[in-house]
Simulated scan of single mutants.
Amino acid sequence: MKETLQPAATGMGMPTRQYEYLIVSVRPDESAPIAYQRLREHAEYGKWELERSRLYVGGGRKFWLRRRVFRVERTLNVY
């Protein structure tokens, strides 16, 4: 199972993104219940939600999970 995190880009001049994405790829020889268990753990503990899933001809699967990016603004001015 392969997981790829695509964080939101930040900085001057960068467009603000509302979501960050986690792509989970499952090989055809891996069991589906174990893959679904991993997705449930991401959803429960990491606050991820399933955006898209795809089943390929060879039996491989790919899942796109997303979660909202929370921007925290500074409230105190410390000198």
Rank of each mutant, 00 (worst) to 15 (best):
M1W: 03
M1N: 05
M1F: 07
M1Q: 05
K2T: 10
K2Q: 13
K2M: 08
K2F: 08
E3W: 02
E3K: 14
T4N: 14
T4S: 15
L5F: 14
P7L: 12
P7F: 04
A8L: 07
A8H: 02
A8K: 02
A9P: 00
A9I: 08
G11C: 02
G11M: 02
G11A: 05
M12D: 07
M12Q: 11
M12H: 08
M12I: 14
M14C: 08
M14T: 12
P15L: 14
P15Q: 13
P15I: 09
P15C: 08
T16Q: 14
R17M: 13
R17G: 10
R17W: 05
Q18L: 12
Y19P: 01
E20R: 02
Y21M: 07
Y21N: 06
Y21T: 14
L22H: 06
L22K: 11
I23W: 03
I23E: 11
I23R: 12
V24Y: 07
S25Q: 13
V26G: 04
R27A: 15
P28N: 05
P28G: 04
P28I: 03
D29E: 15
D29K: 11
D29H: 15
E30Y: 04
E30R: 07
E30V: 04
S31Y: 02
A32P: 00
A32N: 04
A32C: 01
P33A: 12
I34K: 06
A35Q: 03
A35N: 03
Y36M: 14
Y36C: 05
Q37E: 14
Q37R: 15
Q37M: 11
R38N: 12
L39N: 04
R40S: 15
R40V: 08
R40W: 00
R40E: 14
E41G: 06
H42N: 07
A43N: 00
E44G: 02
E44R: 13
E44F: 06
E44H: 09
E44M: 06
Y45F: 13
Y45K: 15
G46D: 10
G46M: 02
K47M: 08
K47P: 00
W48N: 03
W48V: 06
W48F: 15
E49Y: 08
E49K: 14
E49I: 13
E49Q: 15
L50S: 05
L50W: 01
L50M: 13
E51W: 00
E51P: 00
E51R: 03
E51Q: 08
E51M: 06
R52H: 10
S53F: 11
R54V: 09
R54M: 12
L55C: 09
L55S: 12
L55P: 00
Y56M: 06
Y56A: 10
Y56C: 01
V57R: 10
V57I: 06
G58A: 07
G58I: 01
G58D: 15
G59I: 02
G59E: 02
G60Y: 01
R61M: 15
R61D: 01
R61H: 13
R61L: 12
K62P: 00
F63K: 02
W64P: 00
L65S: 04
L65R: 03
R66N: 05
R66A: 08
R66F: 02
R67Y: 04
R68T: 12
V69G: 05
V69F: 04
V69Q: 03
F70Y: 08
R71Y: 11
R71A: 11
R71Q: 09
V72G: 07
V72M: 12
E73Q: 14
R74N: 09
R74V: 10
L76M: 05
L76N: 01
N77A: 12
V78W: 01
V78L: 13
Y79H: 11
